[in-house]
Design a protein around this nucleic acid. Sequence first.
DNA 1: ACCGTATTCAGCGCG
DNA 2: TGAATACGGT
Length: 812
Amino acid sequence: MNYGNVKNFKTRLHSFLVFLKTQNLGVKDYLSELNEAQQQAVVSSEGPVMVIAGAGSGKTRVLTYRIAHLLKKGVDSFNILALTFTNKAALEMKDRIEKIVGNKEARNLWMGTFHSIFARILRIEGEKLGYPSNFTIYDTDDSKSLIKSILKEQNLDEKTYKSSVVYNRISSAKNNLISWQKYNSDSDIQADDRASGKPKMGLIYEQYQKRCFSSNAMDFDDLLFNMNVLLKNFPDVENKYQHRFKYILVDEYQDTNLSQYLIVKKLAAAHENICIVGDDAQSIYSFRGANIQNILNFKKDYPELKTYKLEQNYRSTKNIVNAANSIISNNRDQLKKDVWTSNDDGDKIKIIRTLTDNEEGNQVANSIFDTKYSRQGRNKDFAILYRTNAQSRAMEESLRRKNIPYKIYGGLSFYKRKEIKDLLGYFRLTINVNDEEALKRIINYPARGIGNSTIEKIGVAASEAGVSFWSVIENPNGYNLGINAGTYTKLQEFITMIKSFKVQLITLNAFNLGSHIATSSGILREFYNDKSPEGLSRYENIQELLNGMKDFSDTPISNDDAEVVDDSLRTLDKYMQDIALLTDDEAENPEDRDKVSLMTIHAAKGLEFPYVYIVGLEENLFPSQMALNSRTELEEERRLFYVAVTRAEKCLTLSYSTSRYKWGNVTHCEPSRFIEEIDPSYLELPHSKNTSSSHIYSDIDSFQDTASYTQKPNNTNKTTATNHPPKPPIEKRNLVKLSKATTINTSDKSPTFEGDDTSKLQIGQHVEHQRFGTGIVSKLEGVFPNQKASVNFTAVGEKQLILKFAKLKILH
DNA sequence: ACCGTATTCAGCGCG
DNA sequence: TGAATACGGT
């Protein structure tokens, strides 16, 4: 996400609100847009409520209308807490609520992800736990890097203690509220770790927590864990938030883990106005700690519970809905519900069978190509869904051959790119000098002669003393570092530089300080001098980040009348708090508007497409080999398949190949058991007559492919390994700029109240605001397009306005 | 400090 | 297969 998008979004929203007002569209008739079950779920605002929402049944609609309904009833938005799992879901809900009740009413809603809401509370209350309000939030990379440092210091084998395994173990402990103290005193856990040959796991956990703490840092799981601690150990805090959040809503409840479950339960304890929405059939995240029992057992926590089932599917055809039902009926653990639709029967589900994975790609691409023309479809109406990311390659190649534009979701996100993380590292250290991971990342980047051995010496001293790296460097005399005078000077120079940034935190805005840091740290020069395509792209990405910061800095908080409500300096630490928990919502790039979507099924959850292809339906791939050991795991795979199937609106195609490359070898594959689980009356089985010319040729192709691969000599020389023509660099797509942060959509005009061009507005001019009436411009600040004006209105007095939103009419 | 080569590993991934 | 990382030589 970037601020350009937010801005465009605000502009759009503003236009829409103006439109609503002028159309005199009341908010009363919103209930008439709902079916009976939806209406009940919306209006039963008091007491515990569970909404079981089948796929495509209008879940988000119910959630948003429910909140709108509360607000219309006079509930203060300040008293409503709405928790989601993704930023995207939160944004979408906010968007829709604002459309119903207006920005003003919705502004104080506590709506966001579990992590962002609790981070916000911890910034306020964290001092009680010993955290300053500017604590850093470690992302997964930071956590793993810290684990690696600890392994080195403890002389532990990095293979026995793989950082990802250790990370998951610690994460799962925290999500089950097992502190390191508890972990180390629990004999079962200890025995378990000894049995798996990892007896030092508890020690690593302890070190990890201590290091995070001395770095003033929390990882993602700590945000939830510490929120639990806060509520448990500080009754006054518990009391405060219990009474603030009179109404609580939780989306995707089937995906909550124990830690989240307990927080919600505690917060809801005073009023018990809790509404959870979810679908047990779409629980697909148990591998990261989600506990489906939370929704299955919700009734036990609240015996007074009212349950509403949203069973009418508005998304898909009868064939698709019924096929999905027949799949999920194979699962034992589920809440009973009958999903149905009044939509047409639609096409039967098609099945494509091929001999190789490349051929699978070709046939899917052919089918998309044909359907696109026969049904007048757009590219963006199509999605290809797969179980594992590795499957995307064959699809990409085939689509490229047919010149079908596509977009892969789930690549390297903007904020995870090296150059961005480097610059953010400087920002992080400036804000929180104890941030160990930020310090390690940048202390010698760009190179300034502070090598690994020096950093290791500092690390040893720091962890022995239980203080941060920064404290050691800042006051080196207190420790026996054994570094030479030259290095010592370099360290001092580094410290001085960061300190010089730090003092400017309160005097400069985010953009000005950010660009100053980018320049004087040498980061910008580093990438500027690199004239390779990668270097160029990195340089552009840095520019992109700075553009976003400029937008952030120039845009004070305003309301839907474009009135400035918070004009305080938009500083770097505010910026960092804003982006800390963001993963970018790509897709806003106008070039990506009409493309076929390629993504994993997990990534497709919550989305819908007219034409969906689920590929790689083979035993050991989908269901995954790793899920064949237990019924619960297999049931989760089946739910995943259910999610995939229910993404389709009009037409669903399943495909499998009888052979596939796995880790460089051709493996024989059996069709997935999931295909057989679909009631055959909804299927269009592959006929043998299905041999259009393209298929014949493709089959010959695929045999040749297979032959050439099997003949390949063992030694895999890179220059001869492939007989495909050199392909355009796919890697480029990861470096493509995500979006234009500075684009301002000036053509986005309100349908009823058109503002004049205010770029040349002058002091003393008479203007008209569609809400505040007429007034005289008394002051102008900033440069177009981020110009602000103070206007003395006859009716309401002086207001500060952001010109690009305010849509002022110039009077003569 | 840096580069090329060897080795290893491969499931989905929110915040 | 191929990417990510560790290693080892200069």
